[in-house]
Nucleic acid binder design. Structure first.
Lengths: 330, 330
DNA sequence: TTGAAAGCGCTAACAC
DNA sequence: GTGTTAGCGCTTTCAA
């Protein structure tokens, strides 16, 4: 026997046919207990490992999940996708699936990659991230019947159920942050958001609004400010806000970048109120900024659920509740 | 024709044999120009895509690079591996290779995964990260003749050439940072390092030492401080250093975490000197902290070079020179 | 419950 | 330069 052992080698050692070995691996209940043990012993003795490509050729299933690695994002929150990827890899493994990466420059390129991977049986399911309304990729996937799940809602679509998706409930996150402050007796809670319209940003803003409304607190426009997701700009915006006499006891921010900018502005202004960010990035951790954590492990679990149970009954859309991480500022 | 087209379908349409189609794809120079064009037209017309698993089964090559996704690192520099992974995916694609991820909890588990992936022909080459001297994984790979390259030197090994590796020249990075300050006429340049011994940390420290020595500046022990790679600790260390009257005009730090801690300590102390960090993380970018950038794209290119040219003549070890990114503090 | 035969789609080796 | 044959390792029939 040269090279790796095959089913035939195992069969010879165990004194059975090839097929029985295959059954032991794929349908153990068909094989008599005693025979099964004999085969298992032979497998262990030879260190037999099924040839993945041969199996895939035969079964016409690659058991592989294709994930596009986005263009490198430089932002502070850039690692969210990486965390998701990690969770996916870990859990996919536990479910007998593998994660294959591919890089693409734009939506068209991504579709082209997916077509190739799919046609070549390299991957049979896919995860799409950063989807938007009227996404050309989604249309293509549906049209070509390629199984997929998106991480992110189809913001703005009339019908949100045209495809399977998993997303984090941003609204619940900012609501939890706002409640946290309200529970401490704070009343004038500000919101630092992204410029509208923004699917994710507006959703998070809504959480703040609803939390206040739930306590019967009227919305005061003076309590909100807007900044693009950039630390420097956020810092200037908050500094200016402060200068113009913003009367705020606590601040909910829709991202850690904004929270960091706000923290720095306050530190410079010598006036400090508690801040909560969003994404629970390493920076927030390092600087002791409270933040809302997106549970990428739960997202990954749901994505796999939907991916591996294509015709599953019930909802094909999942909303994951994030978790407020409270920290003492340093 | 049901399902995807095969070589046979293409052959029929083009009026040639299967083998000729295969040749057009894999060894075009063997086929006459006119025939080749005819086959190519047929391929395009049918949207033919070779079945990856069938090809792999036949050629016994998976053309796939296995990369272990490390345990999620929470540190500020945690995204270095992610950046590397991105660069690898992008460039592997351009070279006809794919990147397959796997997760492992420890070195033993990683070897077990590699064995399975390797035996099952899922992946035929591997990249190992975070290697250390006497690494059990390296020993196993060598013993089992599994092709691999490590990202990281075998620190402390007598013989550095037992396996192929690519690493970033930390020494050159801190030297460049030190030179940058020296060129501005600054003399008393401090170093904030990690506790010794530390392969990477000591290497970076050496760059600072050598840059000073090259200008004939004697090393003053009062110019150095040490802290574990944690923003909070670094901040206390620097604060204490400042209190005890450290006389420093500029500070070279062996990581962005340390640089951030130092920046914060200085800001609080109301005394500020220019700082350079290491890794060029998003935080450094956001806060305007100068930093040394590890060119993960160059690392990936070298890793692929070594991986795909197993018996390559010349050095099987590559040192990548990092790049100083100078920023104006905000 | 086990065995024999067939074939997934591809390419290496050889014949023409 | 092109076609024919064989077989990679596996699993899905179907027969015993």
């Amino acid at each position: 026997m040269t090279g790796m052992p095959t089913v035939l080698d195992v069969a010879r050692v165990a004194g059975v046919s090839r097929q029985t070995v295959s059954n032991v691996i794929n349908a153990p209940e068909l094989v008599r207990e005693e025979t099964r043990q004999r085969v298992k012993t032979a497998i262990a003795a030879l260190g037999y490992q099924p040839h993945a490509s041969a199996r895939r050729l035969r079964t016409r299933q690659s058991s592989t999940i294709g994930v596009r690695l986005d263009q490198a994002r430089d932002g502070i929150s850039g690692n969210l996708l990486d965390r998701f990827l990690h969770a996916m890899t870990l859990q996919a493994d536990a479910r007998g699936r593998r994660v294959l990466l591919f890089a693409a420059s734009d939506a068209h390129d991504e579709v082209e990659h997916i077509r190739r991977l799919s046609d070549g049986a390299d991957a049979d399911t896919f995860v799409l991230t950063s989807t938007e309304h009227g996404d050309a990729r989604v249309a293509w996937m549906l049209e070509n019947h390629v199984p997929f799940v998106t991480f992110g809602r189809p913001w703005g679509a009339e019908d949100m159920t045209t495809h399977a998706w998993v997303d984090v409930d941003g609204r619940a996150g900012t609501a939890a942050a706002t409640d946290h402050f309200l529970d401490q007796g704070l009343q004038r809670i500000g919101l630092l958001g992204w410029p509208q319209p923004s699917g994710t940003g507006d959703d998070r803003r809504r959480g703040w609004e609803e939390a206040l409304a739930a306590r019967g607190i009227a919305l005061d426009p003076a309590l909100t400010a807007e900044s693009p997701d950039d630390v420097g700009t956020a810092e200037s915006v908050v500094a200016e806000w402060w200068r113009s006499g913003a009367d705020v006891e606590a601040l909910v921010c829709v991202s850690d970048s904004l929270a960091l900018g706000a923290s720095m502005a306050m530190q410079r202004a010598g006036r400090s109120v508690p801040v909560v960010g969003f994404d629970n990035t390493p920076v927030a951790r390092a600087l002791g900024i409270s933040s809302v954590e997106q549970r990428t492990d739960l997202v990954a679990a749901s994505v796999l659920d939907l991916l591996l149970a294509p015709g599953a009954a019930g909802s094909r859309q999942r909303l994951i509740t994030p978790e407020l991480v409270v920290r003492e500022p340093r």
